[in-house]
Design a protein around this nucleic acid. Structure first.
Lengths: 145, 145
DNA sequence: CATAACGATACTTATTTGGTATCATATGGT
DNA sequence: ACCATATGATACCAAATAAGTATCGTTATG
């Protein structure tokens, strides 16, 4: 299936923020992040700028500048990033939205899909960047033992 | 979000099969279905041919010909149709699949998404065409009272 | 004042999705 | 026999979305 749950930019954003959460220290530049995470530099730049605009990150310009969290990683949820990069949280869009759908109210397919959508969104809402980063670290340590 | 759970052809297939399940009678032609369901004829034709090839429907050619179920609607699941039109059931594709992902094993994002994927697929596997059609009918009746 | 950073924004390219078109073959009714 | 109406197979086209680049400008530091 090519219709995935999260897109590339959301994914990159998540991984980058996870990296930053673990790294702690001060501002990080896009070029360092791109190098470290093997993400195309210019693309990551867009992503970071977006996160800045949306208030997730703060930026400082000039030599030694870069990005730091404006919001605690524990308070950044996967759904926030999905909203930023993918728009409204919907995994099921009624095909007949724009056309005339005579049975929007009665459509049982729609009902089922909406239920599943709710399920997914509920789960996604509970995933925050801090816990993701922590779990990653734990898993990494296990692996090394 | 544009990355939805089911695509147009799957959706059309579901609605068409629901229609056929309720209609019962013998073979139905694509042109009738297209007219009735307001789906672009040539597109629906592809869809129906696909369903024929995959053994969901049987077809008869010539005047009076058309499609009938080869499998009982109660034994056709949403996941079957998704597989046919959207390929393998995956709502989360690891971004680094083709590249080198150093932490596929430890990636906590991946883990979370896989869990959600399982949840969704479990639900989808339980949805069959007969029950969809029945529920639709019930809902329609309620509406009319 | 050069260099290294971000801000804003426009542009290009690749992929996927949605939809058409065409030619061939089969079937039933007159 | 023949024509209208079906599907079979397949190739093609177009619109939308996703992924990635490029450029010019501004700000800060050493």
């Amino acid at each position: 299936m090519k219709t995935g749950l999260i897109t590339r930019n959301t994914d990159y954003a998540v991984r980058t923020l996870m990296f930053m959460a673990r790294r702690k220290k001060g501002a990080v530049s896009v070029s360092e992040l791109a190098r470290e995470l093997k993400i195309p530099g210019p693309f990551l730049r867009n992503i970071m700028q977006m996160l800045g605009q949306k208030g997730i990150l703060k930026s400082s310009r000039g030599k030694g500048g870069g990005f730091i969290f404006a919001v605690q990683p524990g308070k950044i949820f996967l759904t926030d990033l999905m909203k930023i990069f993918q728009g409204a949280l919907k995994i099921n869009e009624c095909i007949f939205k724009k056309r005339v759908c005579p049975n929007k109210k009665t459509c049982s397919l729609r009902k089922e899909l909406c239920e599943i959508e709710d399920l997914v969104i509920t789960r996604l809402k509970n995933i925050n960047l801090l816990s993701l980063a922590k779990k990653d670290e734990e898993n990494g340590q296990k692996k090394n033992n």
